[in-house]
Nucleic acid binder design. Structure first.
Ligand code: NAD
Ligand code: NAD
Lengths: 263, 263
DNA sequence: CCGACTTTGTGCACACGTTCACAAGCGGTA
DNA sequence: TACCGCTTGTGAACGTGTGCACAAAGTCGG
């Protein structure tokens, strides 16, 4: 993998910048947003697929193949890639390694992002032991808990620190991403401490809405919400099926399974 | 009042080869009055907030208060609620319990959705032990793993079954949601077996793109992707900051991190 | 060197989601 | 009852994201 030197090149249009004078209304928004958030999420998926391809010895790939592997529309894939520049060859496809390096650059993965996990319970243990983070450029460098029985105990190779050391430890270990895996009532307080320790990105597993300053980015993973979305689809499907059956006046068992719909 | 139709518009990254499912007329597609997916996700959040309010003794709440608690715009909240009907009182607000019951109805939570977890490793243990699922109407009724040392061992009160029993057990316990927490290489095979067992909803933690039939709903939770999105924001922010500094001809070390920008 | 073929990159139209703004409706009050 | 202030519900404007379809740009065989 060729590490490209600085020499900014033309480089994508990170900031169109054409229309500088914008609305500086009451709510101060960030500047022109370059890449749609949805596209960023997909770029991360493409990167994972491409990494697997590199390992498999693939050197070139077309948008059709890559989009199939990533589970998206090929037009969407090409549009997503166009946000980061034109690195394909018409009639041929994309050089896998080139694409990987450019996506990594855009996602900011040329830099390591140190992670701290707060709340070393069931979930915290799993996260601390997970090898998928360090291998993708997100080394876990600190663990925190209030439980005195846990402090000092190594989990995943890292000793747990007491929550009261959070500001000091986060600063000294240059933590840039904080993961909250505490019970819900403690989440906001932990979040506040992370913020005051200078952490600007937070991944929150506790089912609570966190209040943070504008400059802090929060993403939440709420499994109950995921379940409920699935539940919604089940219900909708059941509604449709029953409506259809009512319309047809017919009861037709669908192949796979005998799903019993209670009247 | 809201005339709600079945609305048969699924989509979700279907294969391009899908034959036209609805031949109701190529021109008009007016029937779909479904609830936007994004709104469904938020409804689940509102539900959680409202449940907390019920416990807190709150009986009535305005869109302004609820939206603040849920971290969204009040107009968006009202629009989201309007998808499920008109249950507010103008000049007063919403009755909390009424709202809870209607959201639960729409999300299909009047029915219990039994959950099976496959892959009882680090993450699987955490999920099996998590009390947040049963309490929200998602009882975990089955656990599966290939590891013979695990089969029979109770985790979170449920003995682990061997993966080979998956079809039989899922059917007999009426599993409607399958959770995949196996290593990535095993995920697709596990998914296929869940589908053949009649499971129509899957929550996937393995970082792979699952291929499923159209009638199966998949949601993925990819923590590495979440991290990378955060990383992207860090990078973008650094870019902006450096651009601004360059414009000002000033170099200012920002507290948290020493981002070195090559000239 | 040319022409056939392949695949990218993108303009455009459309669908979806968000936000604004305000009439309609309700409870309380005189 | 008539008025008033408050909050909902929603039409419409607006912004964002998606998908189509095709010209541009490249490769390859002759
Ligand atoms: N376990 C899961 O699979 C799962 C799934 C979805 C969501 N969650 C959420 O993740 C969070 C953690 O879940 P869990 O199952 O690991 O819970 P847990 O009770 O097993 O662990 C919580 C840990 O946080 C620690 N803690 C409590 N207060 C703290 C504080 N102020 N500062 C630092 N540490 C503190 C506790 O000592 C404990 O070790 C919860 O909010 C839960 O709702 C968990
Ligand atoms: N641990 C985490 O915090 C974390 C975070 C994000 C994603 N993930 C993903 O979740 C998955 C599980 O992670 P983990 O840390 O629990 O892994 P793990 O290795 O601890 O556990 C995996 C379990 O799956 C079982 N298994 C393997 N093949 C199986 C099969 N064919 N059928 C049934 N069970 C099988 C193994 O016996 C093992 O018990 C992985 O795909 C991982 O990438 C984990």
């Amino acid at each position: 993998m060729a590490v490209k030197r600085g020499a900014g090149d033309e480089v994508v249009t990170t900031t169109p910048a054409t229309a500088a004078p914008d609305l500086d209304g009451p709510a101060v928004r960030e500047r022109a947003r370059a890449i749609p958030e949805a596209a960023v999420a997909r770029l991360a998926v493409y990167l994972r697929v491409l990494s697997g391809m590199v390992d498999g010895g693939v050197t070139t790939i077309s948008s059709e193949e890559l989009s199939a592997a990533a589970g998206v529309n090929s037009a969407k894939l090409r549009k997503d890639l166009s946000y980061i520049g034109s690195y394909g060859t018409r009639g041929v496809g994309y050089d896998v390694e080139v694409l990987v390096s450019h996506i990594e650059r855009i996602l900011g993965l040329t830099r390591k992002h140190s992670v701290a996990v707060v709340g070393i319970g069931n979930l915290g243990h799993a996260l601390a032991n997970y090898g998928g983070f360090p291998s993708r450029g997100f080394p876990v460098v600190a663990l925190f808990d209030v439980d005195d029985d846990l402090t000092g105990v190594p989990v995943g190779g890292i000793p747990v620190s007491h929550i009261d050391e959070i500001e000091q430890v986060c600063a000294s270990r240059e933590v840039s991403i904080g993961v909250i895996a505490t019970p819900p009532p403690a989440a906001q307080a932990v979040c506040d401490r992370l913020v005051s320790a200078g952490v600007q990105c937070i991944l929150n597993f506790a089912p609570v809405v966190l209040q943070v300053p504008d400059h802090v980015e929060v993403r939440k993973v709420d499994l109950a919400v995921e379940m409920q979305i699935l539940s919604f689809h089940v219900a909708r499907r059941a509604d449709e099926a029953s409506a259809e059956q009512a319309a047809n006046g017919m009861v037709n068992g669908v192949g796979v399974e005998g799903v019993v719909i209670r009247p």
